[in-house]
Design a protein around this nucleic acid. Structure first.
Lengths: 141, 141
DNA sequence: TTAAAACTATATATCTGCTATAAGGTCAAT
DNA sequence: ATTGACCTTATAGCAGATATATAGTTTTAA
């Protein structure tokens, strides 16, 4: 099957497939005489695996790591579980950071109402005043 | 004050200050004869405002919008409140998406333990099997 | 006085995970 | 013969910085 069919069957763009190939996530397929890429079932499965990992928000580097584990099927799968545990912590710390942010935003929002001029806006005043602690949606979990 | 002092006083990199200037978030300051940028108090306040907005995870475009509102101080601050409300919805939908993701990851993790070979890993099997719904950390709130 | 350290300047590349565009080659049907 | 759908590579763009390269300036110390 050619790249367009593969793309459609998995639900990705053809560009994305070439991109994964360049990133080393998909093995370079054979080519027809005219240079067109030819894919088989295995490629489809591998691509679907990548997409499912992406749905879980695993990074391409993490997916790469999982693929390396799959290439050595007799080692303990503790490494896989550890990767997943790390990812779960990561997601949890993102959630925590966003919840703290939400709280901050809601409290800021409460400091104003629509019946004012911008010059007297409680929200803008609250931002300008300071007393805020840096805390991006990312921490070391 | 020069760029290095400003950077230190606000706690950002000098590169970041030049970046904000290029993005139109900071007005181009006067220059010394040697071409060095010279900043005053106003610049410091404006930069601090930007940083506090960033801590609230507002995008540079949103910050720009807030600045435009500040330039027209007699309009109703409803626009500011609306921007904040939108941002709060945005943050809440991020949280919801991440919580759904966490649930999915935890359930996946429960399907394995460390006493297996990679070949029999429940986590990898779970990912390979499919039956997953696309759901990135972003939705239309 | 001179030489190194510390600062400034611009331009460009890097990061993530794609997506989009440009410019062109291939193939089947009309 | 030409249209259209497909394929190829190369390159640029998004966000929001951060890093690097190269060069000029100022300050400090020997």
């Amino acid at each position: 099957m050619r790249i367009g069919q593969l793309a459609q069957s998995v639900g990705v763009d053809t560009q994305t497939i070439r991109f994964y190939e360049r990133q080393g996530l998909l093995p370079p397929p054979d080519r027809q005489e005219n240079g067109y890429r030819i894919y088989n079932e295995k490629h489809g499965e591998r691509l679907a695996f990548i997409r499912r990992c992406r749905i879980l928000d695993l990074s391409l580097a993490e997916i790469h790591e999982l693929q390396r584990y799959q290439d050595d099927p007799h080692q303990s799968c503790a490494v896989v579980n550890a990767l997943l545990d790390d990812h779960i912590s990561h997601v949890r710390s993102q959630i925590a950071a966003l919840q703290a942010l939400e709280k901050q935003l809601v409290s800021l929002r409460a400091s104003c109402n629509d019946d004012r001029e911008v010059a007297a806006c409680g929200v803008l005043a609250g931002i300008s005043e300071g007393s805020m602690h840096p805390q991006q949606a990312e921490s070391s979990a």
